[in-house]
């Protein structure tokens, strides 16, 4: 299982694997927003938590269709499905690999982009914490969406349509943590709810995603 994780990480990080594209997209988005709404700090600061979270979410979306697509095309997904490792665990591992190559770098890069967005000083710790807690859910939900659309040739657009509504609760609680943190309010409630979503997604969605994969491999 460790070997599978290492293999996935290696594929994602090698040239042309798409690693770094998500980060670049995140940066571009955060540069475009001030160009669109204006450079004033008192205009950017209130929307900073939302923009940073929406940016992370969209950057995460970019690489979702690669979670299963390569393995589906070259047939290794069939082998994984019949391997002694349960398919549910394979799905969870692939989601984890996706998180390590997108969610984790986005979390680490977010404070730098927070500077560009004039995020208030109190918000940085909450931004990193909320992204660290919330982005695993984005990867897991995304893996479910990717499992649904893996058999389709042009599944990318459909994948976004399926996955984005599922991201709503994560986005709401995530931005709420940062917003409240930046305003110096209590953040325990949204943070706990965000953690609950991540735990629930990690616990239950591998089963749904594995079921979808089995249908697609039939």
């Amino acid at each position: 299982m460790i070997a599978l994780l290492v293999r996935d990480l290696r594929i994602a990080t090698r040239a042309g694997g798409g690693f770094g594209l998500g980060l670049a997209f995140f940066l571009i988005l955060v540069v475009l927003v001030p160009l669109g709404v204006g450079p004033e700090a008192d205009r950017l600061a209130p929307i900073a938590p939302g923009i940073l979270w929406v940016g992370a979410l969209l950057a995460c979306l970019l690489s979702l269709d690669r979670i299963f697509a390569l393995d589906y095309e070259d047939g290794s997904l069939d082998i994984l499905a019949t391997a002694p490792v349960p398919l549910e665990a394979v799905v969870a591992l692939k989601a984890l690999a996706h998180w390590i190559t997108t969610g984790l770098p986005l979390t680490l890069a977010a404070p730098v982009l927070g500077v560009l967005m004039h995020l208030p000083r109190e918000g940085y710790a909450w931004l990193v914490l909320s992204l660290a807690v919330g982005t695993p859910a984005l990867s897991m939900i995304g893996a479910f969406g990717a499992a649904l659309t893996v058999g389709l040739r042009r599944g990318g657009l459909l994948l976004s349509l399926l996955v984005l509504p599922l991201y709503v609760p994560t986005l709401i609680y995530g931005t709420e943590v940062v917003r409240r943190g930046a305003e110096g309010l209590a953040t325990a409630t949204p943070l706990l709810l965000l953690g609950g979503i991540t735990a629930g997604a990690a616990g239950l969605l591998p089963f749904a995603a594995a079921a979808a994969l089995r249908v697609n491999l039939r």
């Binding site: 649904l148 399926l162 509504p165 599922l166 609760p169 709401i172 969605l205 979808a212």
Partner: peptide, 28 residues
């Protein structure tokens, strides 16, 4: 049959998330 299976799974998962969204927007 594939379509029925996959949309069925989506409907189950979607229902859970739709319900969560309903409470999340109350919060928001």
């Amino acid at each position: 049959d594939t379509a029925a299976d996959l949309t069925g799974v989506l409907c189950l998962v979607g229902s859970v998330f739709a319900l969560m969204s309903r409470y999340a927007v109350n919060f928001w």
